[in-house]
Amino acid sequence: MAGVAAEPGFLMTTLEKGVNWARTQSMWPASFGLACCAIEMMGTGAAHNDLARFGMEVFRASPRQADLMIVAGRVSQKMAPVLRQVYDQMAEPKWVLSMGACASSGGMFNNYALVQGVDQVVPVDMYVPGCPPGPQSLIHGILSLQQLIMDGEIRNSTGVV
């Protein structure tokens, strides 16, 4: 938040920062668990690592209620259209986080069955490396994404509005 004025009772900020702050602090992820990475994603949300500390524990089953799609795992050729459809169902503003080597680049499976990187299907805002990325990596990725939103302009998935 921007500075607090000398007189008590005033809180000043730019509209941009206010909106971005509101957006970052309650980002609801759509659960898009696909493979091994999904287990780590669930582990991040569970007791030990507790994603609730960052206002993100509400994994939504319905894409229409979610702001962030965490693509956790390998995306097969058969799954890609489904992934795109789920993405299209999400309401603006929306972000995509690609979790793990497979989602980011196909990982170790460079073969006929896998899409070599989910960014061929949907625009990706943040890549988290690892196979699987540990909960700490995922949390770091999410916090970086929050920082990115905070620092940037008000935007939706297609660009600045």
Partner: peptide
């Protein structure tokens, strides 16, 4: 039938 590998793309 080939493995279907495509060259790694640097992004």
């Amino acid at each position: 039938s080939s493995v279907g590998a495509i060259p790694v793309q640097f992004k």
